[in-house]
């Protein structure tokens, strides 16, 4: 059990999202950085769908009410356990009474905390994710506040080496790149943008502005004009879609995306790169790299292989731990 001592009012309990209710207008919700969410769960031997706490703003402090294992993954934030510095990806044991402190985030924008078996919140409509707009799911349908207690689904600590475990996550920036690269597919109205707009979109960086949350980010860069005007009829949209309202500055829809929208769509970021958007901070530059469906499918295969490598590696580590720890 872990008690929230201090936490800005933007953190929510999330899992991999709520599928199957799109037809009712209900978005998926779920962890913005599903990769870090999965890493935190896998380090504890949890199911990857177990609920974690998503923290998009620090500083934050937690007190462990009982001895438990826990995992931390995501942004670098000078985390300490009773004053002892922790790696940004870490799973280990906390003793009753110990203080977990997260400092300012230096690179990355979201941190995930996992508890053994997952955070114990009720499943609603097939998921434990917080549906912020509708106010249900997760921890009483709301953001976490000081004084809240998060319980693990399992009382026992996970099998971990005493000094803890860490995991290698892919780098947010590719070597030599000033911008975070996002692979994207051309979307419905792509060809209706001017040639200059299309060229700018695929070659120049777009900065993450301060106007961003779980629903989406507003970006700032070369303005994107269309050849055709006129209102579109409302149509389906999904996380990753890059829309361009009349002002010409793009918006990316994220985990709490609406299910329908009406702005022209220039591109769709592929799902395996969502985590990169989630870890982008205001001021960070994003650059879109055009891919086709075949490349998008290959990127999913690549991501699945990475996850399988984590699962196999951590299973082997747990087996080793059982015999020698």
């Amino acid at each position: 059990m872990i008690e929230v001592l201090a936490l800005p009012p933007v953190s929510t309990v999330q899992d991999l999202g709520r599928d199957g209710h799109w037809f009712q207008g209900l978005g998926r919700a779920g962890a913005m950085d599903a990769l870090a969410h999965r890493a935190a769960n896998l380090l504890l031997g949890n199911d990857e769908t177990a609920a974690t706490l998503e923290i998009p703003l620090t500083p934050a402090q937690f007190r462990f009410a009982a001895r438990t294992s826990f995992a931390l993954a995501g942004a670098a934030c000078d985390a300490t356990l009773d004053g002892r510095a922790l790696p940004r990806i870490w799973a280990g044991i906390a003793e009753a009474g110990q203080l977990l402190a997260l400092g300012g985030m230096r690179t990355g924008a979201r941190i995930y905390i996992a508890l053994p078996g997952g955070i114990d919140v009720p499943g609603v409509l097939g998921s434990r994710s917080t549906q912020l707009r509708e106010g249900f799911g997760g921890f009483h349908g709301r953001v976490l506040m000081p004084g809240d207690l998060l319980k693990p689904m399992q009382a026992d600590a996970a099998e971990l080496p005493e000094a803890g475990l860490s995991l290698e996550l892919p780098a947010l920036w590719q070597p030599g790149e000033q911008a975070i690269l996002l692979r994207a597919l051309a979307s419905t109205e792509h060809d209706s943008f001017t040639e200059a707009a299309r060229a700018a979109f695929w070659t120049t960086p777009y900065a993450v502005t301060r106007q961003g949350n779980r629903q989406g980010f507003r970006l700032e860069g070369a303005p994107l004009d269309r050849n055709s005007a006129g209102e579109l009829r409302s149509h389906g949209i999904v996380p990753g879609i890059v829309q361009v309202p009349g002002g010409g500055q793009p918006i990316i829809q994220l985990a709490d995306s609406a299910t329908m929208g009406g702005y022209p769509k220039i591109a769709a970021v592929i799902a395996p790169d969502f985590w990169r958007i989630a870890q982008a901070r205001p001021g960070d530059q994003l650059r879109f790299v055009r891919v086709d469906v075949v490349e998008a499918a290959a990127a999913e295969v690549e991501e699945a292989a990475l996850l399988e490598q984590w699962r196999v590696g951590l299973r082997a580590q747990r087996a080793l731990c059982r015999s020698w720890c």
Binding site: D19, V293, E300
Partner: peptide, 20 residues
């Protein structure tokens, strides 16, 4: 096809894989 959702004189299909 996971979900087929009508929009305003359009239709969105959510799929279980990338539609190569």
């Amino acid at each position: 096809v996971l979900e087929a959702v009508p929009g305003m004189t359009n239709l969105t299909l959510l799929l279980d894989r990338v539609p190569v």
